[in-house]
Amino acid sequence: MAWTWFHRLGSPPYVYALCARLTPWLAWPAALLIAGGLYAGLVLAPPDYQQGEGFRIIYVHAPSAWMSLMVYTVMALAAATGLVWRIKVAHAVAAACAPIGASFTFAALVTGSLWGAPMWGTFWEWDPRLTSELVLLLLYLGYLGLRSAIDDPQRADRASAVLAVVGVVNVPIIHYSVVWWNSLHQAASVMRIGKPAMPPAMLLPLLAVLAGFTLLFAALLLVRVRGEILERERGARWVAQELAQS
């Protein structure tokens, strides 16, 4: 009884309809949180005592970096679920994650570079945090490349899932790189034990953008999953019924 919801999440028609229904409930709060958070970060938050107005890059850099890691973790979990239980919907979720994650990893690298230039005096350094984040981008691109190189969708799902699962070792390496090695990059200021290293006027806008990006990811994922499900359900009868209604 308690497991019926779990089994339904493996059913393509159920998930397709659920995604369509949930998307606006995620997308609009995401838009409000991101717009409000970025406004507060740019206008209301006080300047940093060391970095002046330059620290405001944090409101786009940290949420992009958070996305790069969170999306990869979701992708690897979905890929592992697809491999172990052979669930089509799980593979659809993993495939839907990759372009979202790759684009926000790119944003994290570019915004980090634009932050590093005035503060560290260089756009790029082969530093543990920066290098492991670049490896993350290459993992996403490798995943997307592998998928597009294999014509058979089921083989593409399985092969790319193995890559996604193996690559997940990079996620803790990125997160702890600033602790394990001597890095140019500053240590965590939100996700750490004890109190965050920021006053509320600086922290709250950041938390709003972080929450907004997370909801945005969920909304983008649901739209993409519907497309990925349709590609995997060629010839299924429910598709004809679903498309006849809309």
Binding site: I34, L38, L42, P47, G52, E53, G54, R56, I57, V60, H61, S64, S103, F104, F106, A107, V110, T111, L114, W115, A117, P118, L216
Partner: peptide
């Protein structure tokens, strides 16, 4: 002007909004 950091702050926001 962003306290002299305009050349870094605005491109960072532009890239992120473009990605979104």
């Amino acid at each position: 002007h962003m306290g002299g950091y305009a050349a870094y702050v605005w491109p960072a926001y532009a890239v992120t909004l473009a990605v979104i």
